[in-house]
């Protein structure tokens, strides 16, 4: 008996490719960025980040890359930026965990901007 059959190898490869793909940042087109400055963190940005991460994982969105930044400064923390080829850059303010779930469902999956959460930021 061989230790590993071809079928088993196929399974391992599929599973491991999946895992390694998360490290691959090429070909990802949509970026979700959570503002994690000091204000952001105290306003609950961490929970928002976790929620986004869970929802993106659940939805199996492979072209999305979730990052955090300390650079966004706003009085509407927590701030989430979504940058996609379809809609360009959209910034959301005062994002809650619920909103995070909506961002994944509506913006990322259905390609609809959440107009009620959208904020304007000057460059």
């Amino acid at each position: 008996m061989p230790k590993l059959t071809r079928q088993e190898l196929d399974k391992i490869r599929a599973r491991e490719e999946e895992k390694l793909k998360k490290r691959d940042i090429h070909g990802k087109t949509t970026h979700v960025v959570v503002g994690m400055g000091t204000q952001g963190i105290s306003a609950g940005a961490k929970n928002v980040l976790n929620a986004l991460s869970d929802e993106i994982e659940k939805a199996g969105l492979e072209n999305v890359i979730l990052t955090q930044t300390g650079l966004i400064v706003s009085d509407k923390a927590p701030v989430v930026e979504v940058f996609s080829p379809e809609k360009g850059l959209v910034v959301y303010g005062n994002v809650s965990v619920k909103d995070a779930q909506r961002i994944v469902k509506e913006h990322l999956l259905e390609n609809k901007i959440l107009e009620d959460k959208r904020i304007q930021v000057e460059e």
């Binding site: 970026h31 994690m36 955090q68 300390g70 650079l71 930026e81």
Partner: peptide
């Protein structure tokens, strides 16, 4: 502390130090 938890790049260690948007 800075990068993973606060999401801020550790500037002094970066090879290319210019600021950039995450995307």
């Amino acid at each position: 502390e800075e990068h993973v938890i606060k999401g801020r790049e550790v500037k002094r260690l970066l090879y290319i130090k210019e600021e950039r948007k995450p995307y």
